[in-house]
Amino acid sequence: MLRSILGPDDDVPDLLQEVFIRAMDRIGNVREADRLGAWLTTIAVFVGRAHIRLRSRRKWLRLFSPERTAPRQLHQPPSDVRRALRDVYAVLDDMPVVPRMAFVLRYIHGATLVEVAEACDASLATIKRRLSRAERHFLNAVRQRPELAGWLEEGTRWAENKS
């Protein structure tokens, strides 16, 4: 969930720990066991959103975070795919955080509209409006990045061939 929200980010382990800590402190608020997943998603959304806002204020540090260790350098996926992934999240970073959250949950995490509304603590109508805005933003941004658009087109053709 956090990786869907943030993309490859070296702060993910710390943020994941923060989600666990918040969950541990508030577990008494959970009344129904089958709501646990949705409740944890809400916490992850909250933590991810706060981090995005903080990160946008420290944008210049993003490329030089400390956890890129030697094993990662040796075993990372092909560079063009990695670059495409980075470009996708660069597009998302330019999107306002509120519609971004709805977009990521819906399209990258694969949640239903109801699940997105619950995780974002908003009405279904509000989520649909946010998604509409985010979809336009994303598609316009991708069109301005021919390399990314090409990769995504190839990706969809790959998905079609696979299916």
């Binding site: 490859p8 795919v81 819906r106 995490h109 969809t156 998905a159």
Partner: peptide, 8 residues
């Protein structure tokens, strides 16, 4: 989105 999810 599914493609990005796979990469992640």
């Amino acid at each position: 989105g599914a493609r990005v999810r796979e990469l992640l």
